[in-house]
Amino acid sequence: MEGDGFTMTWEVRSVNSRHLDVKWRLPVMVRSAEARFEKVVRRFATRGRVDVSLNLQVHKAELMAVTFNASQAGAMLDQLGAFAASRGEAFAPDYNRLLGMGFLWEDSGAELDEVFVSRLEEGLAGALQDWNLSREAEAVALEKDMLDRIARMEEWTALINERAPQIKEDRFALVRERLREVLARNEVDLEEQRFLQEITLLSDKLDVSEEITRLNTHLVRLRELMQSGGDAGKRLDFTLQECFREINTCGNKIQDPQISHVVVDFKNEMEKCREQVQNLE
């Protein structure tokens, strides 16, 4: 962005972080305005490690609230001149190189021009707007990916809910048959009452209806959070943890090869969702 007597280039980079952590790379002459720039950043971001750098070219001397350390620069040039003389070589200093030596330019302590700082804030706000547009474009892709994964988890939940009663009946029949075999070898009759008691206990151990109900509720919640806007990342992460708890219980209760495969795939999708959630604000 061009200003009156200066040109500025802002660059914003960010990576994942639980909290907002802003790191600055500013020219010496504007470091006193860092607190004001920090307020601008907080209008556009709530979390993340954000690196902000400013490249500034000033064409008006009155805007430069810095002083040149002439004594240090002179000493450096004298040393270089003496070194060249000792080698019998001519030395012609390149004063333009001194412009790039930041340690020779020091904050003069003078107040920065208010119009100048305001223009810098406008430039920073423009860069942050572009930054957020990029993040929003990425979020659209992440949202589609997340919703596709949630849809697969809903299908697997329905499959578990459909298979669970039949698995329970098959397990009952298997238990009855094994009991008959054991009792037959010992020439003892199967007591129907005792068998019903054992089946009741087994039924409680195999019942996943409550887990399925909670899991469906959590999946609905995930969809709601994806569409709610605002800072949903932490809430999505928490809800995914609850989903993991329920599907893990289902896997432990239902010892069935087909369901075991579904549970493994389910956990894999949740882990991918949790990785994606870290990129959402």
Rank of each mutant, 00 (worst) to 15 (best):
L128H: 04
V117W: 07
A125W: 12
L128S: 04
E121Q: 15
L196E: 09
R214N: 10
E114L: 09
M101C: 12
R223L: 02
A173W: 06
G109R: 12
R214Y: 05
E114F: 04
N132P: 01
R221P: 00
E177G: 01
A158Q: 12
D94F: 07
E154C: 08
L196A: 14
E187K: 15
L112M: 11
D170P: 06
L174Q: 15
A151N: 12
Y95E: 03
N96M: 12
G123N: 11
P93T: 04
E169L: 14
E181Y: 02
V140D: 13
R221S: 09
G126V: 05
S203I: 00
M226C: 10
V117E: 08
V175R: 11
Q166M: 10
Q193R: 14
L202G: 09
M226K: 03
V188C: 07
L104K: 09
D189G: 13
D170R: 13
L174A: 14
L202V: 01
R214A: 00
L124V: 06
E162I: 00
D189Q: 14
E136F: 04
S203V: 02
G123A: 08
A151K: 12
G100W: 01
G126H: 07
E143D: 06
E192G: 11
R176S: 03
A173E: 13
E114A: 15
F116E: 01
R180Q: 12
L128I: 02
S118P: 00
R97Y: 03
A110R: 15
T157G: 04
I167D: 01
M101R: 08
E121I: 00
W105F: 13
K168T: 08
V175Y: 08
M226D: 00
D107M: 10
A125R: 12
